[in-house]
Amino acid sequence: MKSLKNHISLIIALFTVLFSVQIYVAVDRTIEAYENRLKNDYSIIVVSNKTLSAAEFKAMDSIIERSESIATDQVLERLQGEMSKKNLDLLKLTLPKFYRLYLSRFPTPQEISKLQKRLQKHSSIERVEGYAQSHDTVYKLMLLFKDVVQIFSISIAAVTSLLILKEMRLWQFQHAERMSIMALFGAPVWLRSAVLFRLAIVDAIIATIVLCLAFFIIEQYGWMDLLLRTVGISIELFDFVNDAVRSLLIALGVSIVLTLMIVIGNEEEE
């Protein structure tokens, strides 16, 4: 088949687009999973001289998901033997309330400092204790990696667009003659371009299948999974239902838009 070469270059171009989108999605997924893990370990201790409800905390900053009061009874019980009941009662009255705050998501350093300032502004809050060190090196590396991947995907998309554009010209050239002959015999536009659309759809499907195969192989070897598990994350690199469907839609979208451009370009030439 003469046009096999053209098929392959379109399939490779589509595959490249799909692959970089998928890598971006997987990195995003990894970071989200890692943030979730960090979020659960992360909390802020607040010392207050008044009882504060969860609603009051939430009103201070929407990032606060829930609050948990830290029981002081245990500490007081331990002091029972050493202090007189009177003093203990006095202490109970003056002892401030301790709260542990849980956040709805893993905060950025800016969000933490903003949160701390807001909490401290509250009249009844005496102390705020956060965990600045929780922005660990792994997390920072991951964010860096995400940026790198983003730049990488954008440049791949740019290069691929050029490739696809070049491919388009070739197609236009190859199909223009047949399409104009068909027009001379009264074929409507959709019939003239049916072959192009069929090719575009077939190529999109093939590119998606190749992508599924590629991720199937990656998952079979399992080294990616192993790598992620060392940082305590388990994610699905490629969801063979949702990701496959999304990839197919992207591939179909790209190739159909491409074909439409050829067809419209061809119409204008007549």
């Binding site: 003659e177 047949r178 002959i181 068909m182 027009a183 001379l184 015999f185 009264g186 409507p188 536009v189």
Partner: peptide, 25 residues
Amino acid sequence: STSKLNFLRRHIGIVFQDYKLIKEW
């Protein structure tokens, strides 16, 4: 209009000097 022209052309048979056959068919 394009649709009228297409309709008309479906009732005309043309023979061109340079044949205009579709090479890949």
